[in-house]
Simulated scan of single mutants.
Amino acid sequence: MENYRERFGFYPAKVLADKLYCSRENRKWLKEKGIKLAAKPLGRPSAKAVENHVSPGERNPIEGKFGQAKNGYGMNRIRARLKNTSQSWIASIILVLNLVKLAGEALLWMGFSAWEDLKVPMESLN
């Protein structure tokens, strides 16, 4: 969260989190900062808490990216001895994931711009 704040100058409005992140301490900190937590509530859920619950498919894209990083790019096979080395490997894998996504979007947009150049006016066909 602090890295997000340093990068963008503010905290996010909402956080999607799994059970591991949703400790009482983290919930209290998020509430103090005014950040909405979308996660399973502690204890018996009230009607208000049910509306903040994360639907089953909402985290699928996030979990899918973790799976892609682990299976496709070897994030689950990092065996570095030092913490800094492991963090560097993880950061590199995330960078590659982002570059692959951006490259796909760039090709898509380049294709659209090339299509505009190839369009032939209807008057020239007659």
Rank of each mutant, 00 (worst) to 15 (best):
P45A: 09
G34T: 03
R7N: 03
L20G: 10
S46R: 07
S92I: 11
L82V: 03
L102G: 02
R44F: 04
N98M: 10
P56C: 06
E51H: 07
N84L: 09
L107N: 14
G74L: 00
E51M: 06
P121G: 14
Q87W: 07
A47R: 15
S113M: 14
L16C: 04
G43F: 04
Y11P: 02
G111C: 05
N60R: 07
V50T: 13
L37T: 00
A80R: 11
K48M: 11
E123H: 14
Q87P: 00
G64R: 15
E6C: 07
E58V: 12
Y21C: 04
S92D: 04
Y4Q: 09
N60T: 05
R24H: 09
L99T: 10
L95I: 10
I78L: 07
R5W: 05
L125Q: 12
H53I: 09
E105F: 08
R44Q: 08
K28Q: 13
R24D: 08
S46E: 03
N84H: 10
N3P: 01
K36A: 12
I94A: 15
E51N: 03
T85A: 11
A13P: 03
N26W: 03
G104E: 15
V96R: 12
E51T: 15
K14F: 08
P41T: 08
N26E: 04
K36M: 11
S86V: 05
P56T: 07
Y11N: 06
Y11M: 09
L20Q: 02
N76E: 15
L37S: 01
W115T: 05
E32N: 11
I94P: 02
E105N: 08
R81I: 04
K70P: 00
E116S: 11
P41R: 05
K19T: 07
